[in-house]
Amino acid sequence: MILKFAATIYNGVMSLPQGMMVTLKYFLKKPVTMQYPDQKWVMPARYRGVVSLIFDKNTGKHRCIACKNCVKICPNYSLAIETAVGEDKKWFPKTFTLELGQCMFCGLCVEICPTKALEMNKEYELATYTREELTRSLLP
């Protein structure tokens, strides 16, 4: 009885230095954190940042045909396209705006695009000073 009591006390008291050894172990190890503005995280290939149009490197043209599939699928109605007909009788987007404050980065627009004209870039520092700056035009 007394022995059992003593054992409980001993185990209880010994649990404290054991816990302290765990913290000491990490005290002697190197920190695992990243020094953010100096070091930056490499975003994985699939990272879903801001929706943007893909511009061909050589011609500088995008592939958007203004079908408005992305506008329709967007759950938050954050995309807007004004269409126009070009000289070659083809539809093209006159304006293509993204309301970044409404976007929830789900990537449905990229998935549905029939011409694969959209992508989500690796941008993640999206804070702005004014509300107006959140409305972005995807066209240059």
């Binding site: 994985p44 290939a45 699939r46 990272y47 879903r48 980065f105 789900c106 990537g107 449905l108």
Partner: peptide
């Protein structure tokens, strides 16, 4: 999970009938 789905918390990785992309 980010490398799989592209987001850290709001994954939206599943689709009706499967998953969005195969594993990397």
């Amino acid at each position: 999970l980010e490398s799989v789905s592209g987001q850290r918390l709001t994954y939206s990785y599943f689709r009706i009938g499967g998953v969005a992309q195969d594993l990397p």
